[in-house]
Design a protein around this nucleic acid. Structure first.
Lengths: 203, 203
DNA sequence: AGGATTTTACACTAGGTAGTTTACTTTTGG
DNA sequence: CCAAAAGTAAACTACCTAGTGTAAAATCCT
């Protein structure tokens, strides 16, 4: 019982956020009027403004919400006595799962839509979002320190991996020119990315 | 003398297109009103409509214009008796020069802005724009046929190269989160992309 | 010079949007 | 049960935008 008392007010608020998410993703932030949004949420326009002081506040609130939902992943740490390729592959697959998740892409879509003409604000958002890009960096450092990778600039290597991933499962999906990757496609992408990478950097 | 008679009308038209390019890129298609645009071009709004029947026509015309300007590149064909890495490197560098050119990125910026919420139309534009991606494919085919590359799926290989390139010199610049690459950065990117690629696929 | 073409300023139509106000109804909770 | 809190519909403000109509003025061409 400790979690059971969604007030009517809270239900309305959730309905508004749900409608905003759908409308902003499908039709865009600028192409969704507050009237349409209220209608979609089956709520009066005044109620929208009772919960959110302005359209801007609603957008920001929604993005924080999506960000919270999309924010967790991990593929494990470096292990000295396990096969390099297997480890890297697993790690990359975890990264793919996070970056290519519907939540993450939809969040980015709203953010890009909203910030496309505000490069400074976009840069800041990107930094927040790119928190993901650290787990692979950590692993590369550990593997390099252990002498199992050679000729490796961590920054560049990490970027190469992410470029190989994102070019296939993030950017095209963000732009909706390609569908999301399924389980097997993700696996194969991880597989061949790890293979290409290790061909060059394995000690 | 054969090229010297820009009529006043033509000058106005150019001024409008120049202003449109600037305004659409800096402030976005939807955030630029025809009044602002006319003011920026130092032309009366009526003149804008005398030259372009509607905002839509202006946008399409501008994109065709930018497309024409951005459209030419070549890095040479495959040669059987030249060093693989040198050839590929040169080819990649040519591709980078095209994809990362200001013209090409600005074109894509206007296109993405305009088509972000019209996935079908965007897909069509992307196909037009990605004509670039063929010269590397051609080269890979030739080199593979000549037995100097192994384990290579042309489609995947070509995509890997393009992902490695675009992740560093196209997507971030399209979003204006990173500046354009200079000559040396381009060269180094081509260099390490070719190196990574050939480590894996060289026969 | 003089008629045709183009440009200009400006008023105007028609429609959309963020946000507010009002008068009324429903839900909630002590 | 009843007062406070929250929700509702609808009209309303104030502003923005694409596109048009018009008559006068600048420019072009022969």
């Amino acid at each position: 019982m400790s979690e059971k008392k969604p007030t009517r007010s809270e239900l309305k608020r959730q309905a508004i956020l749900r409608a905003a998410k759908q409308a902003f993703q499908e039709r865009g932030v600028n192409n969704t009027s507050m009237d349409e949004l209220a209608a979609l949420a089956e709520v009066s326009k005044r109620t929208v403004y009772n919960h959110f002081a302005s359209k801007e506040v609603l957008i920001i609130t929604l993005m924080s919400e999506l960000w919270r939902q999309a924010t967790q992943c991990d593929g494990g740490d470096y292990e000295a006595d396990t096969d390099l390729k297997l480890q890297l592959c697993k790690l990359i697959e975890a990264e793919i799962a996070a970056i290519c998740s519907r939540e993450y892409i939809e969040l980015n879509r709203v953010a890009f839509d909203y910030f496309f003409h505000q490069p400074e604000a976009l840069r800041q958002q990107m930094e927040k979002f790119s928190a993901y890009e650290t787990s692979i960096t950590r692993w590369l450092k550990a593997a390099a320190a252990d002498g199992r990778l050679r000729d490796l600039d961590i920054e560049i290597g990490s970027k190469q991996i992410h470029n190989l991933i994102k070019g296939s499962c993030f950017w095209p999906q963000l732009m909706q020119v390609n569908p999301l990757l399924d389980q097997q496609e993700r696996h194969m992408l991880a597989e061949r990315t790890a293979a290409l990478f290790l061909s060059h950097y394995r000690a």
